[in-house]
Nucleic acid binder design. Structure first.
Length: 857
RNA sequence: GGACGAUUAGCUCAGUUGGCUAGAGCGCUUCCUUGACAUGGAAGAGGCCACAGGUUCAAGUCCUGUAUCGUCCACCA
């Protein structure tokens, strides 16, 4: 240093610093992973955000955590690969583009445009909006290796997807079949079970009369979905239900359709529910479908894929929307006197995750995957080959794996990987390329987005080639994601990893909490309660946003986000900035070198403790604990005490060492400001590869000395308290006298620091001190402090009496414990000794306060 | 209907394997433009640790139950 430092601004101004350093890092390839490096590998793959998405608070949380892990590992000497990329997000993206095109009047339905034209539009959209989120991640400071950025619809990645499909098809894991699936009438596609959200819905339970054929009697059925009755093929009762056994085999006349349908007996019917009679609609209800298979009933489709009624529903209802039809059916049945009653009824209805409309059970030809590697994947988590954190999610995983069902992977969409299967008459061909010969038609469907995402950890690394990257960086170390996608993504990646790499895709999974607003509501676009992270970065700096969030990100607990958090983060950065500024200014005064004093040793001791605490917390993914420790150490130990005390005689090497350690410990959390300060205080180009601090033993810096200094600080606090109690303004210099209980030498040596910390014009240290007259005083563990000058006998008596009462209360508790024989005989020896010491201490303190009080009489 | 989580200061949360006077930030009160920092400093007020039992010398912490809130799973029409 030496040369006159350029003027450092009083307040930290993040904007320029952030831009400057991010550009520098990119230019120098700081984030680029080198597969040929001799260093041990550490890798993370990013949970790929939707390519056309915008950064949310969830992303900020998630990616800050990953960045912290990656940056720390670089400092610990690992060759780090944080592999970024984006997801084509099939149904989400297609839905958004369709909506936009409809709004623009380009089309009513995608069929108006046709596949080719429509896909062109989606690609246009992707070009326009794609990658915004990548720029946003850069603003946040993410240290991803952008040279390896991947997109799930990249040519190479797409090939991986198709290759896996063909392979699983050939192995018999992928099959085509006509099954009941979750159908989204708005998106007009099948969905997986995971994409259906069950929502409690207020509905009705209608009771209808179905007349018995050849009788004036009728049976009563109850339903929540009257419109499906148009497709009824039976009425079912439980075989053991004595009320109805005589009717089994009889027929009823299906109202409105004038069709005779049988009464059947089936175990699936619960006699205790409703009337015990169930209408059976084979084509529009999962349970009914299975019943129909058992009883060989026909499947009458009355609801079309677009949610409108079919011709089979009858001319009165054809072309009505399913919900309009519901009303119409009820109306007609009412007119015919067949509506017996109507009850309010709350039940669960499945909604499409994307289009938010009720799902229709729908019978159709789809592709299904029987999951590979289920036992091995289940066991991997059970036995700890893959660790979940927090552990409780292991149970959720095990439960899902234990009840795993085939995955419907085909989607009736256009945006995605087209299924590599071709048909010609009865022939079927599955392969990477279209088969030779004429007349082959490719399956029109595309694959579920997650069918590409589940290959992410290795498909991004060049698989199926055995690339250097794959060899060096697979398996990855940590995965950071939300627990909401355990089934969608995590579980499937594990199975794919074992199937194609014969190895786990990651060693640890850290599940973040969900970010909610200050009222605890989920952040959503419709509520408008989700702040734009870029606004927050502009206002508080990326470091401030990151740190503020980390401070409140407890392990796997939901996070109530409030902008106040960013303020805390920003203020902390500013505090650090000014501490560095102070050191810079001291350096400029060229203070003489001197041996370590008690304050120096104390801060070095605390520094060692901070290093250990932060390191361990990060090892255990306790990010908030690490952040908290940094906050307390920097603000409390370093700024409030050490820097203040050091104003007596600054010890530049110690100030530098502590600051340097702070910068390195803080760098993963706050990459920009630490890089800036590292370089402006003599650093060597970048802090990113500076060694992660290790606690080192230092002669004299021990717990005993730290405790002595603490007792000194305690005296300072007592002195300030006296000043405050007597309403003496902070700036006024006053006189104190200190009467130590022991260790007089130590306190005498601290006269100068005491004067400074107490803002005193004079501090007398004397073990035999007796005030000339009466003086306000406070008794601490190590000494009694007197404030010379002001005195108010009444107030003083009140204060001392209160203090005496406090001591007595504690003393009573301690003595009660020691009087308890079971405690003395059964408690651990250290616990007993601790109580004895405390008793001794309190007694001495009590005597002194008592004496002071008596002197006032 | 199951499973999991939460309940500690006005608010948001810490509280490690049970053991000093239960902590922090925000907010609140009083004083302070003292040469790092008003995005700051000093000093305060504020808690039946949801409730009821139990284990223990000792429970915010362990066990059982209850209540409230939340999340996930589950095809009763």
């Amino acid at each position: 240093m030496g040369t006159a430092p350029t003027e450092i601004p009083k307040a930290y101004e993040p904007k320029q610093v952030e831009e400057k350093w991010y550009a520098d890092w990119l230019a120098k390839g700081r984030f680029t992973a080198d597969p040929s490096s001799a260093k041990p590998a550490y890798s993370i793959v990013i949970p790929p955000p939707n390519v056309t998405g915008m950064l949310t608070m969830g992303h900020v949380l998630n990616n800050t955590l990953q960045d912290i892990l990656a940056r720390r590992k670089r400092m610990q000497g690992y060759e780090v690969l944080w592999l970024p990329g984006t997801d084509h997000a099939g149904i989400a993206t297609q839905t958004v583009v369709e909506k936009t095109l409809r709004k623009q009047g380009v089309m009513k339905h995608r069929d108006d445009l046709g596949r080719e034209k429509f896909l062109e539009k989606v690609w246009e959209w992707k070009e326009k909006h794609g990658g915004i989120i990548i720029q946003q991640l850069k603003k946040l400071g993410c240290s991803c290796d952008w040279s390896r950025e991947r997109f799930t619809m990249d040519e190479a990645y797409s090939q991986c997807v198709l290759r896996v499909f063909v392979d699983l098809y050939n192995k018999g894991y992928i099959v085509r079949g006509k099954r009941m699936v979750n159908w989204d009438p708005a998106g007009r596609t099948a969905l997986s079970d995971e994409e259906v959200i069950m929502t409690e819905t207020q509905g009705h339970l209608w009771h209808f009369k179905y007349p018995l054929v050849g009788s004036d009697q009728f049976v009563v059925v109850a339903t929540t979905r009257p419109e499906t009755m148009l497709g009824d093929e039976a009425v079912a009762v439980n075989p053991s239900d004595a009320r109805y056994t005589h009717l089994v085999g009889h027929r009823v006349l299906l109202p409105l359709r004038n069709k005779q349908i049988p009464i059947i007996a089936d175990e699936a019917v619960d006699p205790k529910f409703g009337t015990g009679c169930v209408k059976v609609t084979p084509a529009h209800d999962v349970a009914d479908y299975e019943m129909a298979l058992r009883h060989k009933l026909p499947f009458t489709v009355v609801i079309a894929p677009d949610g409108k009624m079919t011709e089979e529903a009858g001319e009165d209802f054809e072309d009505l929307d399913r919900f309009e039809c519901r009303e119409a059916v009820v109306e007609q049945l009412k007119e015919e006197g067949l509506l017996l009653k109507l009850e309010d009824y709350t039940h669960n209805v499945g909604y499409s995750e994307r289009t938010n409309v009720p799902i229709e059970p729908y019978l159709s030809d789809q592709w299904f995957l029987k999951y590979p590697q289920v036992p091995r994947s289940t066991e991997a988590v059970e036995k700890g080959e893959i660790k979940f954190s927090p552990e409780r999610w292991e149970k959720t995983y095990a439960h899902w794996m234990g009840n795993i069902r085939d995955w419907c992977i085909s989607r009736q969409l256009w945006w995605g990987h087209r299924i590599p299967v071709w048909y010609r008459g009865e022939e079927i061909y599955c392969g990477l390329e279209a088969p030779k010969g004429d007349g082959w038609q490719q399956d029109p469907d595309v694959l579920d987005t997650w069918f590409s995402s589940w290959l992410w950890p290795f498909a991004t690394m060049g698989w199926p080639e055995k690339t250097d990257t794959l060899k060096k960086f697979y398996p990855t170390a940590d995965l950071v994601t939300g627990p909401d996608i355990i089934f969608f993504w995590v579980a499937r990646m594990i199975m794919a990893g074992y199937e194609y790499m014969d190895a786990r895709p990651f060693a640890n999974v850290y599940y973040t909490g969900i970010i909610r607003d200050a009222q605890g509501r989920k952040m959503s676009k419709s509520l408008g309660n989700s702040p734009d992270p870029l606004d927050l970065i502009a206002k508080y700096g990326a470091d401030g946003l990151r740190f503020g969030l980390m401070l409140i990100a407890p392990q796997g607990q939901d996070i109530l986000f409030d902008e106040k958090r960013c303020e805390i983060g920003r203020n902390f950065m500013n505090k650090l900035w000014n501490a560095a500024r102070f050191i810079q200014m001291q350096r400029a005064t060229n203070p003489p070198q001197r041996p370590h004093n008690a304050h120096d040793l104390k801060i070095l001791f605390e520094m060692n403790r901070a290093i250990e605490t932060v390191s361990q917390a990060l090892d255990e993914y306790k990010f908030n604990e690490a952040a908290k420790e940094l906050y307390d150490f920097v603000w409390g130990d370093f700024c409030d005490w050490y820097i203040e005390a050091s104003k007596v005689a600054p010890n530049i090497p110690v100030l530098d060492e502590v600051l340097g350690t702070i910068l390195r410990l803080l760098h993963p959390f706050a990459p920009f400001i630490t890089e800036e300060l590292w370089n402006s205080t003599g650093g060597d180009g970048t802090i990113q590869f500076a060694a992660w601090p290790k606690a080192h033993p230092l002669a004299g810096a021990d717990a005993e000395l730290a405790a002595r200094v603490d007792s000194l600080y305690e005296i300072v606090t007592a002195g300030r308290q006296l000043r405050n109690d007597y309403g003496i303004e902070p700036r006024k210099k006053i006189r104190y006298a200190i009467k130590p209980s022991g260790d007089e030498q130590f306190f005498r040596g601290e006269t100068e620091s005491l004067k400074l910390l107490l803002n005193a014009e004079d501090v007398t240290v004397d073990a035999q001190y007796a005030p000339g007259g009466l003086a306000p005083s406070l008794v601490t563990r190590a000494a009694t402090i007197f404030m010379v000058g002001a005195m108010d006998v009444g107030a003083e008596r009140q204060r001392l009496t209160k203090q005496l009462a406090d001591i007595d209360k504690q003393l009573a508790a301690t003595e009660a414990k020691l009087a308890n024989e079971s405690f003395v005989s059964k408690a651990a020896a250290v616990a007993v000794q601790r109580e004895r010491d405390k008793q001794q201490q309190l007694r001495e303190q009590r005597d002194k306060v008592d004496a002071l009080l008596r002197a006032l009489q």
